[in-house]
Design a protein around this nucleic acid. Structure first.
Lengths: 109, 109
DNA sequence: AAATAGTACCATGCAATACATAGTAGTATA
DNA sequence: TATACTACTATGTATTGCATGGTACTATTT
């Protein structure tokens, strides 16, 4: 049993929350999102990010627009929809509950 | 996109950590573990717990012994191995890093 | 112009794990 | 014996992060 695998498993399920959080602060395109997460020491790879963004778009939590880049190919800027913002609030609550649960398990008794 | 599913996904990857934490405090059999987690508001079902316990046993993080019950079928008591304790310490560190990563993403910038 | 490099996005098979469901088995009680 | 309760086992399904391979656009180099 491998700690790197456990790290990846722990990331599962919270990346959605983190990505919506990044976009709460303002629209961004995928590389920006990767950079923001990397700054917070949370690594995500393209093979994960793109399908995830597409899922969120399909579920109407995100919207996007294309923008020409002045130094490379066009970019897809994502932003939160009102529905996305609401969902994010729910995720934030869920995360807090999870944190508390872990805290209780680690401390109590 | 369904908040209940997101809750389940957030649980993925940290149940291992929580179960090892419960056992850090002393050996327990599966129903005890379920009760401890339930007390902390973390729900796990048998179909998840048993395979997980078996995986941890297979990886030598847990040991178990059978004990006759005085009011029902025999019980399988699990306990942490030294290897398990060491792995748990790593998981605790990983969890802390994850908490900080989320905190940074939610707060910074 | 063609080739190469850098950047951006897309597609998909695989591995891991939570859950739902179905079942077996031991013990106690009706 | 049948039923109920408790405990453990097995497995198919759904979901999602990762590895890998690819397409496409723009800029730079040959």
């Amino acid at each position: 049993m491998n700690i790197e695998n456990s790290k990846a498993q722990m990331r599962k399920g919270i990346l959605e929350f983190c990505i919506l959080s990044v976009l709460e602060r303002g629209e961004a395109y995928p590389s920006d999102i990767i950079d923001e997460l990397k700054k917070a020491k949370l690594m995500i790879v393209e093979g994960t990010l793109y399908p995830l963004l597409n899922r969120l778009k399909t579920d109407e939590l995100l919207a996007y627009r294309w923008e020409e880049s002045n130094s490379g190919p066009p970019r897809k800027y994502y932003s939160l929809t009102p529905k996305g913002k609401e969902f994010l609030d729910n995720l934030a609550e869920t995360w807090k509950e999870l944190e508390n649960a872990v805290k209780n398990i680690r401390k109590t008794k």
